[in-house]
């Protein structure tokens, strides 16, 4: 297990800026073999800057989730990669084996999925599931792991964390369950946090609180975050950088200000217009 070492490759465009924590470069692939092969990702390239929140925005079928899953090596088994590179903190993610990937996944890169209640095991108390993560990743004793679990719930501002830790997932609302997932992801003190549609399906007031929490945790812990979303409203309020994807291609990347104020791609403009509906006259 090596820690970060300098990047030997020619860094794309960025000259003076610190090296990005994640570089996705020309990532391509699809489903099926031989004549049935259907490409779905076409040379997807973007970077995630250290300590910032980068959002990947796109609609259904844009390939945003598939790209995110590929970072952790959890893409569907039928997906065939045809080219490209993914580099995390100087390490080639696609080249490393299962064994090595396991030390990266969860510990150095954590992921939070859309449906939190489906991601939690319904037959174990939430605290036990958090403690298991602490034991596995930090080799803690049971008592220490227990404490870490309660502390993790507290850190995502769940009221009465001690009592809540003993409860089962069905006793949590969607918003609270998503906080648990974020707590679990952060328990491993990852360098990169991937959030795949973390607030989709939640009510707007709950969504706003989860995004506030993510922004605040990002700031206080200097987290590098990759947010996968279809909601440009969420992007405008939380992201520093935006990657726009459509049908497996990156159509535009830039700073949030640049993308919203001077979008260059026509699809980006369409998406922006569609997100800002006019009132009935």
């Amino acid at each position: 297990m090596t820690s970060t070492h300098a990047i030997e490759q020619e860094a794309p465009a960025a000259t003076a800026a610190p090296s990005p924590i994640l570089t996705v470069d020309g990532y391509s692939g699809g489903f099926g073999r031989g004549e049935d092969y259907r490409p779905v990702l076409h040379e997807v390239s973007f970077t995630v800057a250290r300590g910032e929140l980068t959002a990947v925005v796109g609609e259904t079928g844009s390939g945003k989730s598939l790209t995110a899953m590929s970072i952790l090596g959890i893409q569907p088994p039928a997906f065939v990669r045809t080219g490209g590179r993914m580099e995390f903190a100087g390490r080639d993610l696609l080249g490393c084996g299962d064994q090595e990937m396991r030390t990266v996944r969860g510990r150095r890169i954590s992921m939070v999925f859309q449906d939190a209640r489906a991601a939690l095991n319904p037959v174990f108390p939430v605290g036990t599931q958090l403690a298991d993560v602490a034991k596995r990743h930090h080799g803690m004793s049971r008592a220490l792991a227990r404490e870490a679990a309660v502390e993790a719930l507290r850190s995502v501002r769940i009221p009465e964390p001690g009592r809540r830790a003993r409860q089962y997932p069905h006793e949590f609302s969607g918003g609270m369950a998503q906080r648990v997932m974020i707590a679990m992801a952060l328990l491993c003190e990852p360098e990169l946090l991937i959030l795949d549609e973390p607030t989709t399906g939640l009510d707007v007031t709950i969504q706003a609180e989860i995004m506030d929490l993510i922004t605040e945790l990002g700031r206080s812990r200097g987290l590098s975050t990759l947010l996968i979303t279809h909601d440009l409203g969420v992007v405008a309020e939380t992201a520093q950088h935006v990657v726009v994807m459509r049908q497996g291609r990156v159509v535009e990347t830039g700073t949030t200000a640049g993308l919203f104020l001077t979008p260059t791609d026509s699809y980006t403009r369409t998406l922006l217009a569609a997100s800002r509906l006019e009132a009935k006259s």
């Binding site: 409203g233 309020e237 200000a257 800002r276």
Partner: peptide, 24 residues
């Protein structure tokens, strides 16, 4: 007001005055 102020707007640099409700 809480509902309106929580809905994100797809505009850059829009600061919303949030009305927060306690709990769920």
């Amino acid at each position: 007001r809480a509902l309106m102020s929580a809905a994100p707007v797809a505009e850059y640099g829009v600061r919303r005055e949030r009305l927060r409700l306690a709990g769920e």
